[in-house]
Design a protein around this nucleic acid. Structure first.
Length: 461
RNA sequence: GGCGCCAUAGCCAAGCGGUAAGGCGUGGGUCUGCAAAACCCUGAUUCCCCGGUUCAAAUCCGGGUGGCGCCUCCA
């Protein structure tokens, strides 16, 4: 199968470092706020990577991290007047709960910065020993970017270029302005850990390098994250890890696109985030996943007003075909291998979920047609869809229950019902004038009446 | 300013060297007393522009133009 590698900027045949095994790490969330749709997107994408790689026969170990100590967390905790570690723990519990609600599976390994302080300190100590880092007068420890000639390979910028336009912090303490902090000295009242360089806490970039090494060793197969992390975060991870080990840190670098709202990226500083919990109040997890995976994971996804409602409508329609097929052929257990084959072919090309999902329209159309012909192949198709598309987290619910929950028939007031019954009688008598008059009355009460072959349907306007 | 990504019908979007998937919408039809729903049919001689490579390019290369992202925290 092929995977796009950000490092080489092309699709490459996927060959893991060790035959049959995949070590995959994805940069998770800095827990200074609630989970937004971008976090969910990233979690869905890497969960999908994991599951498809497993399907291809690999033994996958998939790790994600929580950055549970940083400047913003400390600031938020102070505002809330709780200790920083307590605040972080609460946020993690929160995020886990909403991810569960979104029916996103957890990684095999959860890594947390605060549980890896020892690993981080020894990583930094080794870097200092090898001449790639230095403690500064202010109690910080910095990475010496000049000691790493290959710096910039991922983002395509040189150290000098990366400086251009940068807001430089703690300039006086560093050898070079582009050096970045591995260890930050604690300010008065801040959370801290003891270290050979005094009390402090780890910088952001070093955690991922240190936790990866602790969990996987010197090298991993796939390192993922949002595209916004390419520079400086991933560039710095490479510098740290490769300076220390002399080996290529990650064989493949993958980056998911960003979610945008009105053409603009969601970001903490802009405060335009779509919270996952809010979306789950309005849409089903199936619909969210369908919408998110309908685009290539590498591209940005602009959330428009129609994106989620349209996805919800598609999913409801699909589930209604499933419900009918299962009702019509309750004992049919057969499947359709071709559907699964096509899915694997789509996904083998850099996880082309957009193509795999577009196939669904054809399958359900066919199933609906077969259903009308009372052909049990309809059920074989829906059986296979349930089986195959489980990999994307779709169609795992009881169809009737899904429809009742997400496409519910509204409660109709008795007054409206009796008017509709009266209209039905009028229609039976072919009294069209009265029929139209009654339809108008029903409309005034806020309902639309639509005739179907054996009666009528009422819906709220 | 530097670096990177992207540019396909009204909109969303797949396609990654062999002659333009899919969805939404539009228009037409079947059905219907009318309407709705459902179903069928309907779209780009062409993929931002200009060059180049090739028997062959939306797809590769060079140069423009435009949008976005990163260079502060970010998935």
């Amino acid at each position: 199968m092929k995977i796009y590698n950000s490092l080489t900027r092309r699709k490459e045949e996927f060959v893991p470092l060790e035959a049959g095994k995949v070590r995959m790490y994805a940069c998770g969330i800095t827990v200074s706020g609630e989970a937004h749709i971008g976090h969910a997107y990233q979690a869905i994408v890497y969960d999908m990577f994991r599951k498809f790689l497993q399907k291809q026969g690999y033994r996958v170990t998939y790790a994600r991290n929580y950055t549970d100590v940083d400047d913003k967390i400390i600031a938020r905790a102070k505002e809330a007047n709780v200790p920083a570690d307590e605040y972080a723990a609460e946020m993690i519990a929160n995020i886990n709960a909403v991810m569960r609600r979104a029916e996103i599976d957890e990684p095999d390994l959860w890594l947390k910065a605060t549980e890896n302080i020892g690993n981080i300190i020894s990583f930094i100590a080794e870097l200092i020993e090898k001449g790639h880092a230095y403690p500064a007068e202010n109690g910080d420890v910095y990475f010496d970017v000049d000691s790493c000639p290959a710096y910039g390979q991922l983002s395509g910028r040189s150290a000098d270029e990366s400086l251009d336009g940068v807001r430089v912090e703690n300039d006086e303490a560093k050898k070079n302005a582009y050096d970045f902090a591995l260890w930050k000295a604690a300010k008065e009242g801040e959370i801290f850990w003891e270290s050979p360089w005094g009390r402090g806490r780890p910088g952001w970039h070093i955690e991922c390098s240190a936790m990866n090494r602790a969990a996987f060793g010197d090298q991993i197969d796939i390192h993922g994250g949002g595209r916004d992390l390419i520079f400086p975060h991933h560039e710095n991870e490479i510098a740290q890890s490769e300076s220390l080990t002399g080996k290529r840190f990650s064989k493949y670098w993958t980056h998911n696109g960003l979610i945008k709202v009105n053409g603009q990226k969601m970001s903490k500083s802009l405060g335009n985030s779509l919270l996952l919990s809010d979306l789950l109040d309005r849409y089903s997890p199936d619909a969210l996943k369908f919408a998110l995976l309908s685009n290539n994971y590498r591209g940005d996804l602009n959330v428009t007003d129609t994106l989620f409602p349209e996805a919800e409508a598609h999913i409801a329609k699909f589930y209604s075909v499933i419900a009918e097929a299962e009702k019509a052929f309750p004992d049919e257990r057969g499947t359709e291998a071709e559907i699964d084959k096509k899915f694997d072919a789509d996904m083998s090309d850099d996880f082309n979920t957009a193509l795999a999902l577009s196939d669904l329209f054809g399958y359900f159309k066919e199933a609906a047609k077969l259903l009308a012909e009372k052909n049990p192949r309809a059920r074989r198709i829906t059986n296979q869809i349930r089986k195959t598309y489980a990999l994307l987290g779709l169609f795992q619910k009881n169809a009737e229950e899904y429809l009742a929950k997400y496409a519910p028939k509204e409660e109709i007031p008795a007054e409206v019902l009796s008017l509709a019954e009266e209209r039905k009688r009028a229609r039976a008598e072919k009294n069209w004038a009265k029929s139209d008059e009654l339809r108008e009355k029903i409309k005034e009460l806020g309902y639309a009446v639509k005739d179907s072959k054996d009666g009528y349907e009422l819906s709220k306007l």
